[in-house]
Amino acid sequence: MSSRRYGPLHGIWAVANRELIKWYKVPFIMGISLVQPVLWLALFGKAMNLGNLFTSSSLQIPGLDLPSQVIDELGRDIMLRVFGVTDYFSFLAAGMLSFIVLFMSMNSGMSLIWDRRLGVLNKLLTTPVPRSNLVIGKSVASVIKSLAQASVVLLVAVLLGMRFRAGLSALDFLGTYLALFLLSMGLSSLFLLLALRSTSWESQMMIMNLVNMPLLFTSNSFYPLQMMPWWLRDVAVFNPITYSNEAIRGLLLGVPGVNLYLDFAYLAAFAALFTGLLALMARWMLSR
């Protein structure tokens, strides 16, 4: 037995696979976690149809007799300038992809806390799986779940009327998934990092609830950077969600002025930083 060789990635898939088996055995949880983003999409996205604000039907200024054509044109122009697309729904839908990824990835730490509480972790720590791979495996599982859920959200968005840019190619989808993958890897690792020493799922839940909304609202998920006050914009430029949103909007919706190199570089750095930190910290924080 001792002659068996182990590669540097030994155990990552084994650990991830266990999480995934547990996940797809309970479709109920899968469904539950989709409720929030789909509600945002269907209710908020459809009701807050900003594009409608700037059409001849809502812009009726007494005494000012502009032809409706001009107003519609003006409206489109405003939408394009602010959002980069003419319909807000598509803008929001792209943002919801990062939202579901955030939502799912945050849960990554919980399974580690349960494993610790129930003694499973002690068992895992006596197997030849390196400490770093034990946690990275959990991160990987979290990423796969996130991407699966994001696919469902994307499908729902398309069914509800999300419109892609003209000349869309498979490469754009590939890029979208790459952006979501990097975002999810970074977030999953971050939340696992917070759970490395914890035995309290209550405090982990608190952290999750605490950072959930701020992370979302300090990004460009709901509104573009240009609309933000300067102080919020200064925060938003550090938020990785801002970068994944921008990349995805550039790729899928054709929003102009997107610097894809910057977006992917930032996301890659974010993912690498926290995955690296997680692997490093696991080495000594999991051993006592």
Partner: peptide, 18 residues
């Protein structure tokens, strides 16, 4: 060491969901 040992801890460590 981890390759040559088997451990049965005090706690039940099996995953209940599996």
């Amino acid at each position: 060491v981890r390759r040559v040992i088997g451990v049965v801890p005090q706690e039940y460590t099996a995953d209940e969901d599996l």
